Amino acid sequence: MVNSTALLHYAARAGDHNDRAMAASPHLAAALASHLQTQPTVIGKASPSGPLNWDAELALALPDLKSLAASLDVGFNNKQHPVIVCSRCAVGLATLPVVARHVPDVLVVWFDAHGDLNTPATSGSGHIGGMALAGALGLWESGLGVGIKSVVLAGSRDIDAAEKPFIDGERVRLVSPGPGFVQELKAVVTGRKVYVHIDCDVLSPGQVPTNNKVPGGLSLVQLAEAAAAIAQVAEVVGVEVGELETGETEEETKVNAKVLVDTLGPMLK
């Protein structure tokens, strides 16, 4: 039985292309704190971005990622429901193995425009965020653990050729955006224990500020419908959300953060 919520704010750099997501994450954490009526545990602190290859980025982030993993582990041991705020998807390298250890039959629902299934051997960009899910699935060794057995890519549409062989419907299944998206996703998650990852670029460009702008994504209404459907038919064991960037003003960023929290509300304890 879940007794409370563990709100974790990973404030540090994790393969950040720029500083805008690190700058937006405190506002998202504040919006979640207000919604959940709890205070966040802050892990790490923001530092200037300067995109490096995956190995250098991982080395820089590793101490804070290990701290996040340890805090998440404590939360699960205390039967708390984790809600995690982060800047970038690379944080999943630390969170997903902990989730898998505590919930071995978990289904990860990965809302993202991309597959994030590249490895150091297949990545054309060397960007660690594009390897996050692959690391947790054991497709490469990050040093942060493995253990995830099944994933649904929800709303993904920009998938590299090297990632496609891993999408086989067994370990990794794709639910593409478009007509019937919510109904198909609902059918896949029904009766499962799910851990939900939200990369804001799963949304169509212009819904909220993001670094990547991939056409053909979800609307906020569709994301809200998906969140409600998941909460209705599955057991949500945790949520992580990242990749929200700052707006033109601080007030705009706060508004966007609240809109996002309201959209995901049904999945939040």
Rank of each mutant, 00 (worst) to 15 (best):
172 V>R: 02
117 L>Y: 03
3 N>F: 09
80 Q>V: 05
71 S>G: 07
19 D>N: 02
170 E>V: 00
149 K>P: 07
259 V>W: 13
195 Y>L: 11
51 P>E: 05
107 L>C: 15
157 R>A: 07
24 A>W: 01
161 A>N: 08
3 N>V: 14
49 S>D: 07
119 T>V: 07
85 V>P: 04
87 S>T: 04
116 D>R: 03
58 L>N: 06
30 A>S: 11
117 L>W: 06
164 K>C: 06
200 C>Q: 10
196 V>S: 10
93 L>M: 01
80 Q>K: 14
265 G>C: 04
32 L>W: 01
105 D>L: 06
140 W>E: 04
6 A>F: 11
164 K>F: 07
263 T>K: 05
60 L>R: 10
72 L>N: 02
125 S>N: 05
248 E>M: 09
143 G>L: 03
45 K>Y: 13
147 G>S: 15
95 T>M: 09
185 L>H: 05
129 G>P: 00
130 G>I: 00
189 V>T: 08
185 L>T: 08
206 G>C: 00
131 M>P: 02
268 L>F: 05
58 L>Q: 03
29 A>G: 08
135 G>W: 06
156 S>W: 14
76 F>I: 06
155 G>F: 03
229 A>D: 12
142 S>H: 00
20 R>Q: 11
227 A>L: 10
117 L>H: 03
58 L>K: 02
172 V>F: 00
188 V>S: 07
170 E>Q: 07
34 S>T: 13
136 A>F: 00
161 A>G: 08
28 L>K: 01
112 D>M: 08
68 L>V: 09
54 W>R: 07
242 G>A: 09
90 A>C: 03
255 V>F: 09
81 H>W: 10
53 N>R: 14
230 I>R: 10
67 S>H: 08
15 G>E: 04
69 A>G: 04
100 A>S: 09
133 L>V: 07
99 V>L: 00
176 S>Y: 04
61 A>P: 13
48 P>A: 11
45 K>D: 13
91 V>M: 05
11 A>G: 00
55 D>F: 13
217 G>T: 15
166 F>I: 02
7 L>K: 12
131 M>N: 05
176 S>A: 15
200 C>S: 04
226 A>I: 05
235 E>L: 15
67 S>E: 12
163 E>V: 08
51 P>K: 06
110 W>Q: 01
176 S>I: 06
210 T>C: 10
32 L>A: 01
89 C>W: 05
261 V>N: 06
147 G>W: 15
62 L>N: 12
229 A>K: 15
32 L>F: 06
57 E>T: 03
161 A>T: 14
178 G>M: 08
185 L>P: 05
43 I>H: 10
16 D>V: 02
112 D>G: 06
59 A>K: 14
157 R>P: 06
100 A>V: 12
145 G>M: 11
114 H>K: 11
167 I>N: 04
107 L>W: 14
245 E>L: 03
86 C>F: 03
137 L>K: 10
76 F>Q: 03
247 G>T: 04
75 G>P: 00
252 E>S: 04
161 A>C: 07
269 K>M: 11
24 A>P: 03
214 V>Y: 09
90 A>W: 08
184 E>R: 15
20 R>N: 13
123 S>M: 02
